[in-house]
C-alpha cells in the first residue's frame, strides 16, 4: 500500500503539482478535524464512564 501511494504521489506531484498541493492540504485538514473530534468524543466518553464506575464501586 505504501508503494502504491508513493507511486500515486510521485505521478500526481510530477504531472499536476497544483492538484497535488491542494490534495495534501485537504488530507491534512480533514485528518486534523477527524483527530480533534476523536479526542473530544474520547474524553466525553471517559467522563461519562467515570461517575458510573465510581457509583458501582460505592455499591
Amino acid at each position: 500500500m505504501f508503494d502504491a501511494f508513493s507511486e500515486f504521489s510521485a505521478s500526481l506531484s510530477g504531472s499536476y503539482p497544483l492538484l497535488w498541493a491542494l490534495f495534501v492540504m485537504s488530507v491534512v485538514a480533514v485528518i486534523s478535524l477527524v483527530l480533534f473530534f476523536f479526542w473530544e468524543v474520547f474524553f466525553r466518553l471517559l467522563s461519562a464512564i467515570g461517575p458510573l464506575h465510581r457509583g458501582r464501586r460505592g455499591q
Binding site: 505504501f2 501511494f5 504521489s9 506531484s13 510530477g14 503539482p17 497544483l18 497535488w20 498541493a21 491542494l22 495534501v24 492540504m25 488530507v27 491534512v28 485528518i31 486534523s32 483527530l35 480533534f36 476523536f38 479526542w39
Partner: peptide
C-alpha cells in the same frame, strides 16, 4: 506555506500523517 512547499513536491505526506496522530495526543 504548505501550498507552496507541496507545489514544489517538498512534503512527505505519509510522514506528516504519522506525526499528526501523535501531535494530536
Amino acid at each position: 506555506g504548505t501550498l507552496i512547499k507541496s507545489y514544489s513536491n517538498e512534503v512527505d505526506l505519509l510522514m506528516v500523517v504519522i506525526m499528526l496522530v501523535s501531535a494530536s495526543a
